[in-house]
Design a protein around this nucleic acid. Structure first.
Length: 288
DNA sequence: GAGCCGTGGTA
DNA sequence: TTACCAAGGCT
């Protein structure tokens, strides 16, 4: 399967997007911030917020010196605001335990809040040039199609998947790093979830899914994410009020943001529990 | 391992 | 319009 390398690397050399966190001028912190923001969030929406963050907090120490609430506020509408909390906490740990430098080792990164297997491998690879299996949704989809002949990978990462990805990883460290970002980019731009651009794919002639005639996905249905009326929507509404207000917010303001009382109370308690909101002694609410 | 956690763009 | 989904992590 190592005959996949050359076509993918050549394609990446020609078609890679120029992104701020890929610039030679970008440091490990820029990469780390981007990886947090890109968790489940499209590049287009990350770009402006990433730029603001790096300008305001050019180092982990700069972010750590702020309150967590300012990180949540600056997160804006990227979604999953607990990521902002975790990034702030990770920056604090980096200052306290790593001399203010983003760690290069997978294990050190993996131990930070908000960093799971993917993000640890991604930062070690993209920020420090280390050699790790970087298995995100893009890579998984490309491998499922090219090697397994299925349209989509299983719900969770399988052992076989990880083994395959490890076998495909080039031995040479810098080449492995380029390969990892190249396969991700191929999945993001060509081998997309919907309407893949097979005619533009450098692996078209080697692709098992294409050879099989693009059979439709027949695995278990992926349950749609409910939204309207859910706690997630309610939490989003409540936090938006806090984000868009300097200082404290009265309970009445939050009452106005969501009419269903029981659900509102449950969600507010959840936000406090998560550390995204604090209740003041006066009974008002604020960002931490 | 399944469920939960935001948001907005696209077809 | 509804449904899908976009560089996951945590419990």
């Amino acid at each position: 399967m190592s005959d996949l390398h050359e076509p993918v690397l050549a394609w990446y050399d020609e078609h890679a997007r120029e992104l701020p966190w890929r610039s030679t001028a970008a440091g490990p912190w820029s990469v780390m911030v981007s990886e947090f923001m890109l968790q489940q969030t499209p590049v287009a929406r990350v770009l402006p917020v990433h730029e603001q963050w790096l300008r305001r907090w050019p180092t982990p120490a700069a972010l750590a010196a702020e309150t967590a609430g300012e990180a949540v506020r600056a997160w804006g509408r990227l979604g999953y605001p607990r990521r902002a909390l975790r990034l702030h906490a990770a920056a604090t740990t980096i200052v306290e335990r790593h001399g203010g430098q983003v760690p290069a080792s997978y294990d050190d990164l993996r131990a930070l809040p908000g960093i799971g297997d993917y993000t640890a491998a991604a930062i070690a690879t993209f920020a420090h040039g280390r050699r790790h299996v970087v298995l995100d949704t893009n890579v998984r989809r490309v491998l499922a199609r090219v090697a397994t002949g299925e349209e989509f990978p299983a719900a969770g990462v399988t052992k076989g998947e990880r083994t395959l990805a490890a076998e495909l990883l080039p031995e040479d460290e810098p080449t492995a790093a380029t390969w990892s970002v190249a396969v991700m980019e191929l999945g993001a731009l060509v081998c997309t979830a919907a309407n893949p651009r097979c005619p533009a794919c450098p692996l078209a002639d080697l692709c098992a899914w294409r050879a099989a005639g693009h059979p439709a996905y027949d695995g278990p249905p992926r349950r749609a994410q409910a939204w309207a009326g859910t706690d997630r929507q309610c939490r989003g509404r409540l936090l938006a009020v806090l984000r868009d207000t300097e200082g404290e917010v009265t309970a009445a303001r939050l009452d106005a943001a969501w009419s269903e009382e029981l659900q509102r109370a449950r969600c507010l308690a959840g936000l406090v529990e998560d550390g995204l909101v604090v209740r003041t002694p006066r009974g008002t609410y604020a960002l931490p």
